[in-house]
Amino acid sequence: MKMEEMALSSLDNSKMEGIAQDILSELVEDACLGLCFEVHRAVKQGYFFLDETDQESMKEYEIVDQPGVDIFGQVYNQWKNKECVCPNCSRSIAASRFAPHLEKCLGMGRNSSRIASRRIASGNNTNKSESDQEDNDDVNDNDWSYGAEKKAKKRKTDKNSNSPRRSKSLKHKNGESTHRTPKRFPLPIIHFCLYQSRQCSCLPLPNNRILCLR
């Protein structure tokens, strides 16, 4: 070892540089060889060309790199302000809120069926009863669309009361609605309506008749 150390110490700069270069090229060759082995194995095992398809579909799904569009070449944010029409209550609702609305509207989930049917009932009764104004405030579905949201910015706290979770605590604050809502209307039922020849929600009346709300 002693002699080797001496040999090392006697290196001049140009020799050292040459050795460094050699070591580097050795390393690079190693890397190449590694890659070759890998590719060869992949070819022989048959998974090298797995990600290839025909030219046509390659072109079709090429990544688009242009300003203003995403990688599929579609306009970014184009769905942001779209409104969808609810198939159940036929209101138009901002796309981002459609899912939560539909959940409540169709009456899925724990609490929501009651709330949704109440909303439908009072929403349809808006023009019939003026004394209902207060109640309508937290059941009004206009809050679901973008236009209404902009107008109703200042009523943000009210708006939140649309969510079924909050409605309970709101009821206690808003003492009026506590006793009024359940007594005022019989709950509408969903059934096959003879007036509209389809499923719809109608109010059962005490005399065994049914009042269609539409």
Partner: peptide
């Protein structure tokens, strides 16, 4: 493998 090595190594370097 030999084919690959002879083709790839110069390019790789």
């Amino acid at each position: 493998v030999e084919d690959l090595v002879t083709e790839i190594t110069p390019k790789g370097r």
